[in-house]
Amino acid sequence: MSVATAALGYRHLLLRRSALLLLLAVLLATSLVADVATGPSSLGFSDVVRVLLNPDAAARPLRVIVWDVRLPYAVMAVLVGAALALAGAEMQTVLNNPLASPFTLGVSSAASLGAALAIVLGVGLPWLPQDWLLTANAFVFAFGSMLLLQALGRLRGAGVEAVVLFGIALVFAFNAAVALLQFVATEQALQQLVFWSMGSLARATWPRIAVLALALLAVTPFCARAAWKLTALRLGEERALSFGIDSRKLRNGAFLRVSLLAGVSVAFVGTIGFVGLVGPHAARLMVGEDHRFFLPAAALSGALLLSLASIASKLVVPGLLVPIGIVTALVGVPVFLALVLTRGRAG
């Protein structure tokens, strides 16, 4: 193969990947509209688009259904999916472990512990209004668990494998603490806690959406800046170090971003597993691990997956909104298996 042929092939590769990102974005937009159109009072696809584009011209009941009831859920699904999958993608890269995700390394368990403390014991940050107590507790614990993981990883002799093991240990520790709180909880508190931990988009409000969107916007430039270094890190830590990359600094930055994204997401919607694991795997299969493409593809895949799960959560049991955490796992497992088997056959 001549250099010119290879250069052309590389350009085609980049174009194909850009096209895949565009396709994912189009699918996501379609899924978002479909999510808004799906519900007890059936709305046409075109009706939804019309109300979304021109809300003032729509009848008030229609406008309320679309803008105040369904759109917040649908947008929250997209943002949470994007945030968790982006967090999972960065974790998998910096920990060099395909099983790393906010869910598997303790973020969700930590958030559950924070929520349990608020629900069962009423313990939380003192200066916050009561209706933010649970969310704030969940965020502080989720964010704190990532920082704790990062701190443990700084201990002398602790490599990336040790960080993963620390994360798994944290899951068990937090789950045990939650079980203890459940054991002493009143029946009402227990019910509330169980429902919270299922993960639900029903907690979506526009202020919460704005906070999560801001968190995503805040981390995006840092992700973009780290993309080349993260790509090089895939060639191994020693090789990356010899390229002049400060891998510890890179890892710390990624952990901060993961803490923010996962902490805010889990605090707002509860435990939603699998997206942080499946999103990056789907992206890796589609666009490889050039992180200029991999990170946005992971975010888009996660957003699409959770948006589809949101639609499914309305259709599984007609007339009932099943908590999306349940649907994600039900939809995610077969998708994940299919991805792994496809990869096995391709490899």
Binding site: Y10, L13, R234, L235, G236, R239, R284, L285, G288, E289
Partner: peptide
Amino acid sequence: LPHGVALT
């Protein structure tokens, strides 16, 4: 080189 890297 490490294994399982999806890069050309």
